[in-house]
Design a protein around this nucleic acid. Structure first.
Lengths: 163, 163
DNA sequence: CGATGACTTGCATAAATATACAAACCTAGG
DNA sequence: CCTAGGTTTGTATATTTATGCAAGTCATCG
């Protein structure tokens, strides 16, 4: 059984990623309204900061309408490990991490290093575009591993995004 | 005296493409100045129109600096989900899907949406180039999940993807 | 507790971008 | 030439986005 370990519900940023991917965000005030409808109240200033962190950009689509979207091969602004983690779940021997689009490989590299150092009790990880799976040493260690990862990213605030 | 106005070979837009690709355009007024240095005089309004036309967008780069850049065009031909699924297997808490080369990311996106909607009992997925792993909520749910995915792709024949 | 420091957010405003409109500029046809 | 139609551009302004700063939050440590 899976449980959300980070926020009480889905984090605001995960929500934003979803909204942006659904293509319904045409401006920041759009985003503010969409979030409000989901019960998340923030101002345009925060929307601006979130979109920047997530690497979303505004451009016209095929029909000439402005839309926020994620750039392929994202180059995200310098950020922290914590900012790359949207959600952490666990199941069996796995911890599953959601990231902004394109950031999974990057974060996984850091986690792999932590595993080699012995800072995390995993046997390896695999990353796609926006999801990472970390495999625990123990058959039921996913949940504990998820917590350890949460701690790890909180403690390692500084990281420069490269590429 | 008559003024000689000509674009000798290089059009303004080609020049803009070059400037943007060199990563030296941080704002539209930057572009206006850069063009002026090359002997092309336009205003910010025209810069705005040109950039829009060319599909350039503004976002922060790795060093936290704003930069105009081109977004990759990831348009995919409309197809059906079913056509993208070659094989579904299960093991433990995982369902593993084989797809034609390059289609995994696309299909995974759809599955993720289904997961978010509650249509599939998974906690996330990871896609490579031609393989997707979907993680079940339950430690032994891989097999049931595989069947659910099979049903899902059969029931959702139409899929459209823009941009 | 109470203080401290690191984050986060909103407010107010600056900065940047988009666009309505009018003038300038084509081009083709007579 | 002259005119009528479309296209491009600049001006002025509206719209949208970024950000300095202060206040609020939260965890930590003594």
């Amino acid at each position: 059984m899976s449980k959300l370990i980070l926020d009480s519900g889905v984090s605001r940023r995960a929500l934003i990623v979803e909204l942006v991917e659904n293509g319904v965000i045409h401006s920041q005030s759009d985003l503010v309204k969409a979030l409000a409808r989901k019960g998340v109240k923030v101002t345009q200033a925060t929307a601006s900061r979130d979109l920047e962190e997530l690497g979303a950009v505004r451009g016209k689509d095929a029909t000439g309408v402005f839309r926020y979207q994620f750039i392929a091969n994202t180059e995200v602004a310098a950020t922290t490990l914590k900012n790359l983690v949207l959600e952490i779940d666990a199941s069996g021997n796995l911890a599953v991490i959601k990231t902004p689009p394109g950031a999974a490989q990057l974060l996984a590299g850091q986690l792999d290093r932590a595993i080699k150092n012995g800072a995390l009790a995993g046997i390896g990880s695999i990353a796609g575009d926006d999801t990472i799976m970390v495999i625990s040493k123990s058959a039921t260690g996913g949940s504990a591993l998820a917590k350890a990862i949460d701690r790890f990213v909180s403690e390692n605030q500084s990281m420069k995004r490269v590429r």
